[in-house]
Amino acid sequence: MFTAAAAAIIVAMIIMLFRAIAGPTVYDRVLSVNSFGTKTVLLLAVLGFLMGRPAFLDIALLYALINFIATIAILKFFRYGRLSASMADMDLIRGDRR
């Protein structure tokens, strides 16, 4: 049961890896990295059950929290070229369309 889930997740990861390498746009990469992160969380959780080591869930939990940071940082960096500024200010400067 867990094996099947783990297998499915790994297959999905492999496919995501293709997309991440292939691109073609930056957004595709970001998307696949983010998605990859989610799948890693799932894989960790499933592995924890698979190997009977619930302590693994701590790691999954950490990933669930931190993967988000990476995605946000990537996007912010990509939009603004730097990480320091507040998003609201930057939007005004760059004339963001809403």
Partner: peptide, 30 residues
Amino acid sequence: TGIKLVLIFLFMMMTSPVATHSIAHAAYAG
């Protein structure tokens, strides 16, 4: 373990739509 799973569940619920949203937004804005 259950509590941890619930927490993961909650965080995933929160973060992954937001991440998807912001990626799409960024692409649109870009």
